[in-house]
Amino acid sequence: MPADAIQFEPLAEDALLLRFGDRIEPVLNDRVHAAVAALRDLPSLECVPAYASVLLRFAPAAWQGDEAASAHQRVERAARIALETRHAPAGAGRIHEIPVCYGGPHGPDLHELAQHLGLSGTVVVARHVGVDYRVAMLGFAPGFPYLLGLDPTLAMPRRRDPRTRVPAGSVAIGGAQTGIYPAELPGGWHLIGRTPLRLFDADASEPSLLAAGDRVRFRAIDAEEFADLDAARHR
């Protein structure tokens, strides 16, 4: 990856941001995941991927600067070398199939969203399950995935008054984005369905079901299957 097209911005005493662009675009986000793959083995460094940027948070003592170069310059140099020499495959990411019960009590906003878009609920669901999504980044709350790939005809501005409690597992559309609430949280996105899967479990060896760069495919299930899967999870 040519490192010259990257903007390096020191954010704090222990933080350097690598910016690939300022738009939400799959091609920029692909570069983010490739960069994380190339940088993840650098010592004393934590990578935080976002849509079009990667934050490097380093231990200042381990990258201690001197007169010749500051800690930020050392980290930047190491990052440039890693990006140019390590062609770690960004990988297609794991694929997760997420069962979702659309509409009804699990997706209380499906009807309103469909009406707003001039579509039927069935068409909205068909278009939502019809594509593969990429986990662009996780943020907002532990395990909350921002997914790339939403059919643009399904975009709808966020709710005027956000809910104070969105149930865990809710699948939602906010603007041109779609995501899944991993826990009961406040939220302003439109709830179109709900998955019985648990997206975040702090006590599990891998706490987050999804990682940035993974792929997600939704599968429509009915309320009965939702209840079965939900019961199986709690058994």
């Binding site: 954010l11 976002a50 849509y51 934050l55 948070r57 943020g139 921002y146």
Partner: peptide, 11 residues
């Protein structure tokens, strides 16, 4: 118009 990026304590 900004897209989400990493934030830090102190930001």
């Amino acid at each position: 118009e900004l897209i989400s990026e990493a934030t830090l304590p102190g930001t």
